[in-house]
């Protein structure tokens, strides 16, 4: 859960930055930039460590999921060294996310997904959504009168049998 959040934050940050750079270059809005820079909610500390050398891996897993939106910082262009950066493969729970960012003239010019959990449709379906936080609880025996019971013990033999046959096909 946390991993996909952190991965998402990372990806969103990258995308936001790329968009920002794109619009920033085509529309040149310095007033907006200064507004962003003065906004205390837009911290620069959470932006990806792009100042590192091109050979160094970016690790989305080290970022905190609770960070404020890492909006494009208002730092001057050229803080990133040119080159192509490959992020480390991050376990996003439904699969692995790995991106590659190209920096040119100090700006992100391209982000490509080297790995993305879309090999199966359910993975894609889930990866397109915010991951739900599912409620957990410690089970407790209850003294309740019920009409009937659904459970493992009656079915374990049948379960194993049907499951073995149901799932064994993949060996074929």
């Amino acid at each position: 859960m946390k991993k996909i959040v952190t991965s998402s934050v990372f990806i969103i940050a990258f995308s936001a930055y790329a968009l920002f750079q794109y619009f920033g270059s085509s529309h040149a809005a310095p007033a907006d930039i200064s507004t962003v820079a003065n906004d205390p909610n837009n911290t620069v500390s959470n932006t990806p460590p792009m100042t590192s050398a091109p050979t160094e891996s970016l690790n989305p897993g080290t970022k905190k999921g609770s960070s404020t939106t890492p909006a494009p910082s208002a730092k001057q262009q050229g803080q990133y060294a040119d080159g192509t950066y490959t992020g480390s493969a991050a376990d996003a729970y439904y699969g692995t996310v790995q991106v590659r960012a190209s920096i040119s003239a100090g700006r992100i010019t391209d982000i490509s997904f080297l790995q993305y959990p879309n090999d199966r449709s359910e993975s894609l379906y889930i990866s397109q959504q915010a991951m739900p936080i599912l409620k957990s609880e410690a089970i407790q025996a209850q003294s309740a009168n019920v009409d009937t019971v659904s459970g493992a013990s009656d079915t374990s033999a049948a379960f194993r049998e049907s499951l073995a046959s149901a799932l064994a096909s993949a060996k074929a």
């Binding site: 089970i139 025996a141 309740a144 019920v146 009409d147 009937t148 019971v149 659904s150 459970g151 013990s153």
Partner: peptide
């Protein structure tokens, strides 16, 4: 109609009523 979910650890116990 009520259905108890049997405890997988103790066949006499119900852990949830559905």
């Amino acid at each position: 109609w009520s259905v108890g979910i049997r405890s997988p650890f103790s066949s006499n116990d119900i852990v949830k009523v559905v």
